[in-house]
Amino acid sequence: MSFLSFCQWLSQTPLSIWLRDAPYPYPVLLIVHVISIALFGGTVVIGNLRVLGKTMRSVPVSQVIGQFRAWKWVAFAILLVTGTLVAMSDPMEYYDNIMFWISLGVLLVAGLNAAIFRYGIYRSVSAWDEAAVAPASARRWAGVSLFLWIALIFAGRATAFF
């Protein structure tokens, strides 16, 4: 089965039809998605700004990141579920939307970037945990991370425009 026919099949499933045609699912998904953006984005931004030495300089880096870990994962899980359901509400529409695929690409790169930080430079965090400003390699990660998440907001908004 090709991906196109998969999308065609998906758009005819009862769940997809319900998400598309019932009055409440879409606005509820949108509201939950946007609130989660604020929670996820807020914790990501403050974590990155701490690495850059722009906030909470007297609090160890691992403590700032550790405080947010649970909140961040909860918000991210909600974003993934609500985002997937929105995509499922109209698979054929998103199949044809170039900005939707660009958004997913940016999300993938942002995720890879976070993983490279987590399993790379962050493993030596004990050496620079107390430093007001993290080493240049960690700061570079944080800068790229901020850029990618902002790019995802632009690409996500543009998905609705195209």
């Binding site: 984005g41 807020g42 931004v45 403050i46 909140w71 902002i150 907001i153």
Partner: peptide
């Protein structure tokens, strides 16, 4: 295209504003 671009900045702004307010409230 100007509207969605400015609106994207508006979304970044609310993420910063509501995100940091939420952390303080937590």
């Amino acid at each position: 295209w100007v509207f969605p671009v400015v609106e994207s900045i508006h979304i970044c702004g609310f993420t910063l504003l509501v995100g940091t307010v939420t952390i303080l409230d937590l």
